[in-house]
Amino acid sequence: MSAATVTLVPSAPGRGVWWAQTWAMSKRSILAIARQPALVMPSLIFPLFFAALGTSSFGKATVLPGFPRVNSFLDFSLAGSVVQGVLFGSVTGGTALATDIELGFFDRLLATPTSRVSILLGRLAGAAAFGAFQALFFTLVLIPFGVTIEAGLVGVLVITLSGALTGMGIGGFTAAMALKTGSSEAVQGSFPLLFIALFFSSAFFPRQTMQGVYRHVANVNPMSYLVEGVRGLTIDGLTLGHVAGALLVPAAIGVVSIGLSLRALSGRLAAR
């Protein structure tokens, strides 16, 4: 019997056990991230690299018509970096779940008296915790380079919470894919889709400067509104609209994705 299954043995009946199980699963998925930093390092380094590249390459674009008033391109790019990093990091959680399925650990969990939902929620809680860490990490790293958060400390907290909700929301999609396919390769294959969703939004450039079909796609892409919420907190200040964009959009994405992952979970359980 492994250490992980020992922690799943209920010590008290009822709701307390359910929480204990979910907490144990969450702890396991968070520790898995901490123990394999090489897996998540790219999702921390690449967004910073792109922010640095963008600031040098597109610094002069901030005076173009349609560009929001910013102190520097770095202020503009913080939101894109946060969402980009959290999106890429979310693939890691889904891949880990698929790996559990491939290696048979998922079946071992099912053989224990663990709540099935706890297995999924634990994984999503791990994604949320890592999303919050990423959002805070990007903000704190970029502040010394000149980024100003106009919404202040409350803004930083909202951005961190937004990172958690985005991690959970996108993690729900990758978890659904993991449960549906049981293949880590298939989950990794979702990476280009996330990349496309990110690029056809206002993550890297304002919608107002885009034209034609790109602008139409960015206008209907929820990622645009999520990024603009976080960006508004950075460059405008604390407003209800920006807070709503930063929190409600990822929450709505989460409702859909968690619904899909629960459905995929029950499909997998029914197929056993």
Binding site: A61, G66, F67, F200, F204, Q211
Partner: peptide, 24 residues
């Protein structure tokens, strides 16, 4: 195929997203 499709996507996505830089 990812090696074939990624550059196609990159050409399209970069051109659309960063369209405005041509006005610098």
């Amino acid at each position: 195929f990812p090696a074939l499709l990624m550059p196609i996507f990159q050409a399209i996505a970069f051109s659309g997203t960063f369209f405005a830089i041509t006005k610098i």
